[in-house]
Structure formats: C-alpha cells, structure tokens
Amino acid sequence: MGKKELSEKISKLAGEKNAAILAHNYQRPEIQQIADYLGDSLGLARQSSKLDTELIVFAGVDFMAETAALLNPGKKVVIPDLEAQCPMASQLPAKTVQKAKKEHPDAAVVLYVNTLAEARAEANVTCTSANSVQVVNALAEDVILFGPDSNLAWHVKQNTDKEIIPIPKNGHCYVHKMFSATDIELLIEDFPKAEVLVHPESDPEVQKLADYICSTSQMLRRAQESPADEFIIATEIGLVHRLNRELPNRKFIPALSDGICQQMKLHTLDKIYRALINEEPVVEVPSDIADRARAATERMFEVSKG
C-alpha cells in the first residue's frame, strides 16, 4: 500500500474512531502531514489537555505519550511503537531526583518534560525548552534542581540570578550533542546572511553562535516573522522538513543533515494505522505517579501562559 493510500485510510479511520493524531516536529514528513496536531513538547502537551476525542495516537517518544496520558485520565492514549524511548529521559530515574532533594531540601525541582513521569512526580513544576527560563524565574526559591538536560540548564543559568544545579551532571540529548561549533562556523562562512537558530539542548559553544536560541515551535515562529531569507537550523532534521514544506520561499540549512533522532523515526504510517485499528499499545501511568506528575505539569501551564 502506498503512502498516499495509507494516509487516506488513517484519516478515515481516525474520523470513525473519534481519534486525534498528535505528532512531534521530529516525526517523518509523511507522519507530520497526517497529524491533527503537529508541534513541540509544550504545544502538544497543551493540545492534549484540550482534546475531546476518545482516542489519542501519539507519534512521539515515551515521555510525550505519558504526558498525554496523565493529562487525559479518561481517554485511551496509544503510541505506535513502544520502543520509541527517549534516551535522555532514561538518564534521570526518580531515585536520582529523590537523592538530590535530600541533599538540597530548600531547592525547588524543575524538570524538563523530556523526563519519564516517575521522575516528574518528584518535581515542583515541569518545563519545556520553550518556557524553561520563564518557569524558573517565576519560582520563589533561589536554588533550583534542574534536569535532565545539562545544556538546557546552562541556557537557563544565563538568564536567571538563581543557582541552577543540574541533575544529573551530564544529562544530554545525543542528537543535539552532534552539533559542533566548528560546523556552525563553517556554515556561517558559507551563508553569511543566514540567521542561526539553535536549540538549547545544544552545547554552550553552539548556543553562543546563535542569533536566537529556540524551541522547535519558536524556530518556526521566528522563520515566519523574520526578514531574513536564509536560516541555519541546529536541531533534529524533522523540523527542517516542516520548515521547507510550510515556508517554501525561504532557505533552511540543516546544521547537520544526519542529525536524526532514531527513536522518533521508529514510528511509521503502517504502525500508526495498526495502532488505530487495535487501539494499542496503550500508554498507562500508575495513578499515584500520574496525580503528582499532572500537578507539576498543570503548574507549568499556570506560570507559562501565553
């Protein structure tokens, strides 16, 4: 079955089942195009909390599907491939957060949503790459335990007077660690008029070369609003596919053409179709963990309105 025919079948079946397909910006182009909602972690979290559908098919990695599940306790959330597990999220188990809280009892715990629900249940509030600075600066505490991405923690530290303690010390996204300052500098030489848009999961040396440090949704917004015609994009290649599709009159240069999240790319149209038919694999979060992680997520919404 070709991609076009399969896409049509998916759309028809989703309508019949009152299902919504949510997809992250790093998904394959053909999945981006059949999604009811396409966005970054914050946008998808917000959207999942507003849905009135009975079934949610989440084309993203595990922690994202968990967010949808804990925000929608009365709905069924399925993920097309259970192996779509974020390596960074696994770097911060709940026991590591618990240990850090004992060592710093007066600190607030701010966890990136790129973290499994069991760890987020230990947080005061969660954040995304789009709102991390806003969330941290909205807290009363002067000391912040922040995890799991140490590069995002560095970015926050540049924009706050608070003490930021990364947990773990070297948490990272393997895709954004691929970008190097040398590669970006060479691209700047080749495209001197291009704006440099860098994701804050990138190393500090790369962030320092940015014209704008952005989440994926902020990169899209900047490209829409900027007077520039060329952009160097330092994030996973999936966003470049979206930018090229939605803004065909602009030029988007990937910082690394093989900057690919293998876990995101595990989802396929065929797997989405089967997930819709079988309504599985179901994403389930234990109720005690879900309640606490939900509270941390809802607090994020409260302090990052807009």
Rank of each mutant, 00 (worst) to 15 (best):
T182G: 12
H176Q: 13
K75L: 09
L71V: 15
C173W: 01
K17V: 11
D288Y: 07
Q27W: 01
K12D: 13
A119T: 03
G2K: 15
E54P: 07
Y26S: 02
T160R: 05
C173A: 02
K169N: 07
L13I: 05
V133F: 03
P204Q: 09
Q27R: 05
E236I: 12
G238K: 03
K95G: 02
E141R: 00
K169R: 14
R28E: 11
N25M: 10
K251C: 10
A275C: 08
I167Y: 01
K177F: 07
L247W: 03
Q27E: 08
A130T: 07
V283R: 03
T126M: 06
E280P: 08
I289A: 06
S287R: 10
T53N: 10
D40G: 09
A100C: 05
G15D: 03
A234W: 03
F191D: 06
E16R: 08
L145M: 00
L256T: 09
M300Y: 03
V240C: 04
A68H: 05
G147Y: 01
P286V: 12
R294Y: 10
A94P: 06
A181S: 12
V303R: 03
A84I: 09
L186K: 14
V175R: 05
S41E: 04
I31Q: 06
A210C: 12
E163P: 02
R28S: 14
L71W: 00
E302V: 12
Q33C: 09
S132E: 02
D288N: 13
V303I: 11
A117S: 04
T268K: 04
L51W: 07
R222F: 05
L145E: 00
D81V: 14
Q207R: 07
D291C: 13
Y37G: 08
L82G: 07
Y37F: 14
E103Q: 15
P148H: 09
M178A: 07
T53L: 11
N131K: 06
N249A: 12
A223H: 00
V77G: 06
T96A: 14
S257R: 15
K177N: 13
R120L: 03
F252M: 09
I21Y: 00
G171E: 04
T128Q: 01
I144N: 00
Q91L: 13
D258A: 15
Y112D: 05
L197Q: 06
M64L: 10
G2N: 15
Q91G: 07
L220P: 12
H172D: 09
H267T: 11
I237P: 02
K157D: 13
K271C: 03
G60R: 04
D161T: 15
S215F: 12
E103G: 11
E280T: 12
V109P: 04
E279H: 15
N124S: 10
K102S: 15
L116I: 09
E230Q: 02
Q47F: 13
I237H: 08
L269D: 04
L22K: 02
L266S: 04
A107L: 10
A65L: 04
L139A: 01
E246D: 15
S226T: 06
T115S: 13
G238C: 11
I164P: 00
P73Q: 12
K265I: 06
T115R: 05
D270H: 09
P227R: 02
M88C: 02
D36A: 05
K3M: 14
K169S: 13
V125N: 00
L220N: 07
N170W: 11
D149N: 07
